[in-house]
Amino acid sequence: MSISAADVKKLRDMTGAGMMDCKKALSEADGDFDRAVEILRKKGQKVSEKRSDREANQGLILSRINDDKTKASLLEINCETDFVARNQEFQDDAESFLNAAFENDIDNADDLLKIELDGLTIEKHLEEMVGKIGEKIEINNVILATTEGTLISYIHPGNQLGVLAEFDGDLTDEEIGKDVAMQVAAMKPLSVTRDGVDSSLVEKELEIAKEQLLNEGKPEHIAEQAAKGKLRRFYEERVLLEQKFVKDNSVSVQQYLEQNDAPLVKSFHRLQLGEND
């Protein structure tokens, strides 16, 4: 049957798909718009599968936090190009996915894909975005944080890096919390305290330090002691509360918090595009 230009335009306006794709879908569906939309979705799924080996290292990190700072969500949505990430429609869709995660207390990407939004699962929404945009698009990370203390959210300009920091009590000055969240963003600590560092990593660092000292000709017993000194420096670089505070290197993060009568950090989450797959 003959497909009019007006019908093609109507389907394109409904779906955002390309003109030729819309014309082919309408022809295949004998002019039935619902069937044509279904055909486009199926084509979107095929596009997604074809692009499964493509790198999706661009995108957005977004956060939402409630008014009393006791619940927050952090979401990473990925695409292939920065051009798409800066598109307003992509950003609006990402925001709606974040809100769905927050409102449904979702703490992982797989569960978020099953949530319905405007009559479709988020997984189907992603398929439609792939068909429309022509890039691999996926939600890689969803984090839910709750606390009896205080949560602080920090999104670095450009939305490629985000942090949620949990403080063990009431934090009256949010700027202090932002400072610490920015510290996490910039300095990439492994954990809040030494106890949180993986023991195998500690053993490896100790072994490397000792081997270096032995290679320098140090006796075994001296190498053992000096390696422990190097391990202390490792903790100062990789443990948040022991790190030098970026805004004032004369104090550690813990000393900065104590000087300002602020509660200590209890936990943190850090998401950076392409680093948390």
Rank of each mutant, 00 (worst) to 15 (best):
E258I: 13
A109L: 12
L206A: 13
T147A: 02
I222F: 02
A209T: 08
E236A: 09
E127V: 14
F102Y: 12
K10I: 07
R12W: 01
R41S: 08
G177N: 08
K43G: 15
V130S: 04
N87I: 04
Q272T: 14
N215W: 00
L241S: 07
D82G: 09
L144M: 09
K10E: 04
D13S: 04
D82I: 14
L74H: 06
I176Q: 11
N104F: 00
D30Q: 07
F97R: 14
R233G: 05
R86A: 10
F167Q: 12
M19F: 06
E242W: 07
A17G: 03
A25S: 11
K43F: 11
Q91S: 06
A29W: 00
E216F: 02
N104D: 02
G177T: 11
E205C: 07
Q243D: 05
E103G: 01
S250F: 03
G217L: 11
N159D: 09
D105P: 04
A181Q: 02
N249K: 10
D261A: 14
I65L: 03
Q88T: 15
K210Y: 04
Q88Y: 14
E174H: 02
E123V: 15
F245S: 09
T150K: 02
L151R: 09
V163G: 02
E148C: 11
V251W: 14
T81F: 12
T70C: 04
S153V: 07
R54I: 01
T121P: 05
V37I: 02
L241Q: 09
L164T: 00
S199F: 02
A223R: 07
D93E: 14
N260T: 10
I122G: 09
Y154M: 15
A100K: 03
N104R: 02
R86G: 06
E166M: 11
E95I: 11
F83P: 15
E211F: 05
F167M: 15
Q259V: 01
K10M: 03
I3M: 10
F97I: 07
L126P: 10
E237S: 12
A101C: 13
D105N: 14
I115A: 05
K43M: 10
K244F: 10
R232C: 12
L164A: 03
S153P: 09
G169A: 04
Y256D: 08
V142M: 01
V192E: 05
N99P: 06
V192I: 15
L26A: 05
V130H: 01
R64L: 12
R194H: 01
N78H: 12
L264Q: 09
L126F: 13
I61R: 11
I152V: 07
M129N: 13
D195F: 01
K136F: 13
F268E: 11
V253F: 08
F90D: 15
C79D: 09
F234Q: 07
D92Y: 07
F102Q: 12
E242P: 11
